[in-house]
Design a protein around this nucleic acid. Structure first.
Length: 238
DNA sequence: AAGCAGTCCAACCGCCCTTTG
DNA sequence: CCAAAGGGCGGTTGGACTGCT
């Protein structure tokens, strides 16, 4: 049996109080990040170290951008998800001020459903093989897939009559099962998506080197896009 | 106004990878 | 080289909130 990450007894769980937040902020301001295991004790917090880390990274960090995602951020998330899959930390690394948790939540609550309504499988970014029955409202699917514009076009296509989230999930699983054979071979997930594609919050001293990597990353991204030329969501950005 | 269903998001859990001794 | 510890990540959950009937 695996050892727990920290002592569970005597530690608080659930929502953080203002006092706890302040203690954590004060401690990190004076001591910096790191050594999360010993931090709670040193900071006088009755919390698990992991919980402190999460609270800091996802909520208390001063450079965090709060509020709604802008259209270009959404576009970028979709595009990066098509390239990287559910590697939220890598995707978040390309969105200044956004956290992996935030991106993940936004994907699951907004973008995923939006793609499904468009008839695009959010798992592999391909057009659903089970195209919803003939319906003028669904015309936007093919229109969007062939559009040269941005995802802004999607907003006009979100009125498809799907009644519940359960139905959305069913459609998604249907689509996935239909596409299984197709994707089991040389799917995008099998691509070698090396981690060099991401560069979260680079330290200043390595910026120059990062610039080189950026060039390389974009080259690689282009290659991957070529490989995924049948991906409707990628087509949206062309 | 009340009850219900759906949505959102902060936080937790457990696995995996990296580091350290 | 190996095992243990620490850190990071993605998946999932639960509760607060909102909108609809």
């Amino acid at each position: 049996m695996r050892k727990p990450c920290c002592e569970k007894e005597g530690t608080n769980k659930g929502a953080w109080s203002k006092q706890e937040d302040q203690k954590l902020i004060d401690y990190i301001k004076s001591h910096g990040e790191g050594c999360w295991r010993s931090l709670p004790k040193a900071a006088g917090l009755h919390r698990c170290g992991k919980s402190c880390r999460l609270r800091w990274i996802n909520y208390l960090r001063p450079d965090i951008k709060r509020g709604n995602f802008e259209q270009d951020e959404e576009d970028l998330i979709i595009k990066l998800h098509a390239l990287l899959g559910n590697r939220w930390s890598l995707i978040a690394g390309r969105l200044p001020g956004r956290t992996d948790n935030e991106v993940k939540n936004y994907w699951n609550s907004h973008i995923r459903k939006k793609l499904i309504k468009m008839g695009i499988d959010p798992n592999n970014h391909r057009l659903n093989q089970i195209i919803p029955r003939p319906n003028p409202q669904n015309d936007c699917v093919s229109a969007a897939a062939t559009s040269s514009g941005s995802m802004s076009n999607i907003s006009a296509c979100t009125k498809a009559p799907i009644k519940s989230s359960r139905e959305i999930d069913q459609r998604a699983s249907q689509a996935t099962s239909v596409l299984e054979d197709e994707t089991s071979g040389s799917s995008s997930r099998d691509l070698n998506l090396d981690l060099t594609i991401a560069f979260p919050n680079p330290p200043l001293q390595v910026e120059e080197e990062m610039q080189k990597n950026i060039k390389g990353s974009f080259t690689m991204a282009r290659e991957i896009e070529t490989t995924l030329q049948h991906s409707p969501t990628l087509a949206l950005f062309r």
